[in-house]
Design a protein around this nucleic acid. Structure first.
Lengths: 331, 331
DNA sequence: TTGAAAGCGCTAACAA
DNA sequence: TTGTTAGCGCTTTCAA
């Protein structure tokens, strides 16, 4: 079942069938009708692979995220898919499962599949560099949320320093004099910026931070639980725990409840991302809201700019976050 | 940068380059070396589209799920991706956003892209039928979790009746005499089976169900909240609320807390799926655990069977669920 | 073990 | 407006 079968049945050339069905070039209405009828009759679907080879474009954008178990990334993906659809493009989604090797493999695969462009949130600030650069050399590429150093590509994300300013000022307003920070390992840009922001604003606001109260693990509920246990076992309890994402914060809240530590009476806790589940915890979580839809829209816009072959210096767009205040910080 | 460039540099034919790089056909070690060197030097990546056209296979499986915001589906996707990787295949993920039209479009797109097979959790029991059948006519196709009527394809999911048996017997053990059910509209197989199972086992166990206490909306946190408001406003409160998925149950718990209804003292609540966040609510949620990894593995196995062109009558595999008991049902 | 050559299904020049 | 024709880059006969 190919375009030739349709052409024969419709008594026209294959070129005409192609033009009639794609609607790109002028074809007389009568012939279009004739071709459509023939195609319908045969149930002709078209071969996207052959078309892609000939046109050297796939109308597909690849996206690589560290995890699809994290609602922050799935939210981002949904918005990107939406934005892409308006541009008539499809999304090819890959998860790198926070593994630089798997990520490199995914990127190679996307390049081989000739996607038109790539949107990536790289796993690691340095270990991802080579693979990201290699992909960026072949294709338009935009980084979101996190970025690797040493690749000249566009980036969109949130202003992490501004986010921690919001958090720390809010905590200072609540009378917090000492704070802990729980995060993933410092292996990527946004994590680094969050830790740096935490320290900077803590110092500025006179909030004490003990070195052993900065705990680095990974972005997961389980690590939040473990960190809570560690934190509660060690010496004097700080007034607040600032978490680098909501998964960590939710694990933290659960472990606190289990340990009989009342949040917010005994301890304030904040998160980062404002995933849908942040409103459902006990107590509901105060957290930084990321402008997900805007990040997605901007990523797609940047990519389209590059796809349109418009040369421009790489943009770095840091969008302003806001703070969603809930009971985990309201005494 | 094509295979010809590599061939020229390595002083061999394009056929030899292809054979050397794919490793499929015998090539002398010296030549392989020579070709590899040339490919590396040029940074040759290969064109998957051209290869796919020639071989008429893409080593890619498409997956279509109703939502990627629902952790149940993302969990399933992760397991499928894992299982597929072992078979050297990639996953092309699409979300139908619970829209049969969008779903039909995604399916057409996957067929056009010549994926080797499709794994789908169809949106709607009847509105999805045509699109699913059309895809199944072209390609190997396996349905997971939900299925449409009237398509002869394999299916893997959970035994919904057995699941509701577990839930209802657990509730009966807890002394429940009356129960409500909150679910999505009855537009797909598993939802129907869950409602039917609820009624059947309620009757069998002598648990009273008032008609107005069966609320149908959608699988979302928000609907869980709304249903709670409706339920709490209307007449005498039942002893328990059985929810058809965890999102609904989590919304329900939140709204109960807000309304001052103490779970489990005043009301028992159960969910379905056992997503990671079900353990973090207040109180933690009693829920049906779906054997996600097994469902995914079985789906991939069934698909591989069909891909291997082994004719077999369609299988319907209903895996046994288990019950995760937490505080939302423990007085 | 290697090379020459055909052609996967489609679309874009070019010509009519 | 339509047809003819030449490939897109690759793999796979077939022949050597």
């Amino acid at each position: 079942m190919t375009i030739r079968d349709v052409a024969e049945l419709a008594q026209v050339s294959t070129a005409t069938v192609s033009r009639a069905l794609s609607g790109a070039k002028p074809v007389s209405p009568a012939v279009v009708d004739q071709v459509r009828r023939a195609a319908d009759e045969l149930g002709y679907a078209g071969n996207g692979i052959a078309s892609a080879l000939r046109r050297s474009r796939t109308d597909t954008v690849g996206m690589v995220v560290p995890s699809i178990a994290n609602p922050f990334f799935t939210g981002l993906v949904e918005h990107v898919e939406h934005a892409l659809q308006d541009a008539g493009r499809q999304l090819f989604l890959c998860s790198s499962r926070s593994d630089p090797e798997l990520e490199a493999q995914r990127l190679r695969s996307l390049v081989a599949r000739q996607v038109d462009g790539i949107i990536i949130s790289p796993v690691h600030g340095s270990l991802s560099t080579t693979a990201v650069r290699r992909a960026a050399d072949e294709l338009p590429l935009v980084q979101v949320d996190r970025y690797v150093t040493g690749v000249d590509s566009d980036w969109v994300g949130v202003d992490d320093d501004a986010a921690l300013e919001l958090v720390m000022e809010h905590l200072a307003d609540r009378g917090v004099r000492s704070a802990a920070f729980v995060s993933s390992q410092l292996t990527n840009s946004s994590t680094e910026l969050r830790v740096a922001g935490f320290h900077r604003h803590a110092e500025r606001l006179g909030i004490a931070v003990r070195e052993e109260d900065v705990l680095l693990g990974e972005y997961s509920i389980e690590w939040g639980r473990q960190a809570a246990v560690t934190l509660l076992a060690a010496g004097p309890r700080p007034d607040a725990v600032v978490c680098a994402d909501d998964l960590i914060a939710l694990g933290m809240l659960q472990a606190c409840a289990a340990a009989g530590v009342d949040v917010p009476r005994d301890l304030l806790v904040t998160g980062f991302d404002d995933i849908p589940f942040a409103a459902l915890s006990h107590p509901p979580l105060t957290t930084v809201r990321q402008p997900q839809a805007e990040i997605a829209a901007e990523a797609v816009r940047l990519l389209s700019r590059v796809l349109g072959a418009q040369e421009a210096p790489p943009s770095r767009v840091a969008l302003r976050p806001s703070l969603t205040v809930r009971s985990s910080t309201s005494r």
